[in-house]
Nucleic acid binder design. Sequence first.
DNA 1: CTGACTTCGGCCGGGCGCCTGCCGAAAGGC
DNA 2: GCCTTTCGGCAGGCGCCCGGCCGAAGTCAG
Lengths: 394, 394
Amino acid sequence: MPGRAETRLQAKILTRLRDAGPQSRIQLSEHFEVSRTTIGTELGRLTALHLVEEIGPAASRGGRRSTVIDLAGHVRFVGIAIGATSVSTAVTDGRLRVLAFERTECDVRRGPEPVLELAAEQTRRLLVKLGVDRPLGVGVGVPGPVDFSRGIPVSPPIMPGWDGYPARDLLGRRFDCPVLLDNDVNVMALGEQHAGAAGTVENFLFVKVGTGIGCGIVAKGELYRGMDGCAGDIGHIPVADSVAVCACGNTGCLEASFGGDALARDALATAQSGRSPLLRELLERTGTLTAADVGEAVGAGDATSVQMVRDGGRRVGEVLAGLVSFFNPSLIVLGGGLTLLGHVLLAEIRGAIYRRSLPLATRNLPIMMSDLGPQAGVIGAARLVSQEVYGVAR
Amino acid sequence: MPGRAETRLQAKILTRLRDAGPQSRIQLSEHFEVSRTTIGTELGRLTALHLVEEIGPAASRGGRRSTVIDLAGHVRFVGIAIGATSVSTAVTDGRLRVLAFERTECDVRRGPEPVLELAAEQTRRLLVKLGVDRPLGVGVGVPGPVDFSRGIPVSPPIMPGWDGYPARDLLGRRFDCPVLLDNDVNVMALGEQHAGAAGTVENFLFVKVGTGIGCGIVAKGELYRGMDGCAGDIGHIPVADSVAVCACGNTGCLEASFGGDALARDALATAQSGRSPLLRELLERTGTLTAADVGEAVGAGDATSVQMVRDGGRRVGEVLAGLVSFFNPSLIVLGGGLTLLGHVLLAEIRGAIYRRSLPLATRNLPIMMSDLGPQAGVIGAARLVSQEVYGVAR
DNA sequence: CTGACTTCGGCCGGGCGCCTGCCGAAAGGC
DNA sequence: GCCTTTCGGCAGGCGCCCGGCCGAAGTCAG
């Protein structure tokens, strides 16, 4: 029955083992510039807590072989990423490597009870399959603002019925372990920080272009959530040349002119108007059009679809250009469903940012696609709760 | 000869005395939830360092009277705020109360040597007047991006000749004490955090509308500077309906459509076109028009000038609306020279933000004018270096 | 005025985190 | 087989912080 780390050094050791893999005592003491003795005593306690274990001797460095320490083999975390239209779950080991993953289509608008029931059941299935008795922690991402300290969604525009629903505490009782609830883009940013290109970067933005558009902010190596937990909600920033009516009631929101829903709507209008024979064909085949259909059309070289994506990408890029001037990040990672639109979208966003931001801010600013795909959210959710269990910032 | 604080608790004690005033040992131990003994030993060391001193007995609380501790009376900091057109200097005590203040008009474009010479001479004058031998530290704000860790300006657009100039180290040798160099809006934000409405707030924006437009960002109680030290440079974010050419080479920058220079330019055009008799009169009287003249015209009820300010305020507000959605601050403070335009500007900015940001983000978002005026910069600069001397984050 | 009570603040001994020094165990090289 | 190197546990020491004790310095009731 493993416990939780207590001291600062324990947290640093566990984090190091999580992010850099198994280490010898010597390596740890050199990395943290702390004596072998200190590392040794803390490792003793962590062993007693069943959080780490010795996994065998390392190669000799000319003398006695050192013993390699790793996170205990039985440690398991659960990451749950609830999207607008899907629920993804993963079980990971202590180093957040995904051991099992499952994704189910599910509309978040069905309300908290059925969606969380589905998520919990999906999780239970994976845990049983892996023979896991009890995970050390569960991280959850939901597509709306969250009061992180209380673990409840607040005024989520696309999640009717979720406002104030005590999701964290209910899941905590269900799984009998620590549960943390956060915004979906926030956990995706954490996922990118863990497994993606953002690993060593202090300040970066994770921009999700999916059904909606949102942004996870990492400042000085830590998630920034804002006063109400709604920082990064860039989907409703006005864009210049748009009068599209948004679900939020305003007009000209970025999300109303691009993003999954807007793209599907525009594709439908385009298909019906006959400007794109390819889209019309796709519409007639399936009876409906989605953003993925537009992606397919772009891949097939459909000029009208390419233009739609370009226009959208330019608008996203123009909004991001302003945010780059404001935030001066070291990196921007693009993720979410619409990354299927690939290099056309990336090129347009890059062009807009490099054209419209301060040269000083873009001089060393890589802008790249996430390579974690649908797993960014679940890995990040697991990372979120791993920090709690490993005692980071306590 | 006072030294610098060494331990974390010492830094906390000094900061507390700076921000909350003289305290008894008991008050300090209760506030930090640390034993009397610990406070006592640290205070002993701080006394030996000549950083604190006993200033007499407090009122009795029913028993023996406690001894009140204060920052040592001889402690002095210097704050220097270099603006686009002025150099302000203040000497403060350990609690950052301004003991002497001087402001000289001076164009920063004259280059680093003459401007820093003027600043140093102005400082020297104040120090002599107050009989100060040596300040404990000097903080400096300059109107452009700064590599904070190296203490040098980087690619400052409005400061030709300053790029890479080792301002911090040169001033350090001149004053023989620690010197810190930062962006002017950053130090103004610190000033507001110390003496203004932002004192207890974790996340806020200080927006300066002066010759240019910039923004200081405080996140989780700490200044956020971005990767290159140019975070908050919002003057070059594009605004919707503007084609004004900016000094940066782009068109449609916020700063090109509003701010001191743009306002003076527009006022001149308006006066020459005859649309505003009042502005024409002001132009003919002085031969030139400044933003202050527009302020006077607004005060006199000149409709054209009011409209100019309204248009500008709306544009600033629209940009800020996007940043509010992104950053979700608890407070926005407006400062800089154009606060002379007063409630017209404030009302317009407020209107645009409340109209165009997420309701969740604006629900509890005060937007107010700074009440520190020209002293925000010097107080903030002194605060910046006081944190260094007091050992914060070391 | 006096004695009981309260608060303040210095001193003492102890727990704990971290250090260095030392030594035996375990490996490699000749 | 012996020396060298590395590893890792143990002993002793230092600094930080704690609670307990006690004298100093107040208040207050009678």
